[in-house]
Amino acid sequence: MNSLQNGYNQKFSGNAVITPYPATLTVDNTRTSHSSGYFYDTHIPVLFYGNGTQKGVSKKRYDLIDITTTIANLLQIEALNLATGKIIDETFK
């Protein structure tokens, strides 16, 4: 439900939010989906490797937006203005 709340904009979104059953995609054959509001669709492993990263493993849960903010920090570029993610500090030396 958190992804539904984060994707809702009072000014632009409609009055109703429809959440399909798990494993249901509501797109046609000409487009793709960017996941759903269910945890199993957004649970992804990530590996940070290279200069400036720290060796180790973490079992903590992070949001997808945390990964994009962390990558922007690794590349030393500014994150998007609307990015609400936090930098995953344990990846850095």
Rank of each mutant, 00 (worst) to 15 (best):
L64G: 12
V17D: 11
S58T: 15
A72Y: 05
S36M: 09
V57E: 06
S13Y: 07
A72H: 01
A72E: 03
Y40H: 00
T19P: 00
Y49S: 01
N6G: 12
E90S: 15
D41R: 05
Y40Q: 10
N81L: 09
T53F: 08
I67Q: 14
I77P: 01
S13E: 13
N29E: 07
T84E: 14
V17E: 07
A23S: 05
T68S: 12
I65L: 02
H43N: 06
Y40S: 06
Y62D: 08
K60P: 03
L25S: 11
G7A: 06
Y8M: 03
N6M: 14
A23H: 09
K59L: 13
K55L: 04
Y40V: 11
T26E: 14
I44T: 02
P22Y: 13
T19H: 02
I65T: 03
G7Y: 13
F12I: 08
A79G: 03
V57C: 01
Q54N: 12
Q76G: 01
F12V: 07
K11Q: 05
I88M: 11
K60G: 06
K11M: 07
I87Y: 07
N9G: 06
G7N: 13
A72N: 10
E90M: 14
L75R: 03
D28G: 11
N9S: 05
D63C: 05
D41S: 12
T69H: 07
V57S: 06
H43T: 09
T26P: 00
L74K: 02
I18S: 02
T32R: 14
L64S: 08
D63R: 14
K93Q: 13
N9C: 10
K86I: 13
I44M: 09
I18E: 01
I71S: 11
F92P: 00
T24F: 05
A16Y: 10
T69K: 14
T84K: 14
I87Q: 03
T53E: 04
T70F: 02
T53K: 08
N15S: 11
P22Q: 11
L4H: 09
T42P: 00
V46A: 12
N73V: 00
T68D: 07
L80A: 04
I87R: 05
L47P: 01
T70V: 06
T19G: 00
Y38E: 07
Q5F: 10
Q5I: 15
Y38H: 13
A72F: 01
T19K: 15
T70S: 11
I88S: 13
T30G: 03
G52N: 04
I77A: 09
G14N: 14
H34K: 09
N73L: 01
T68V: 05
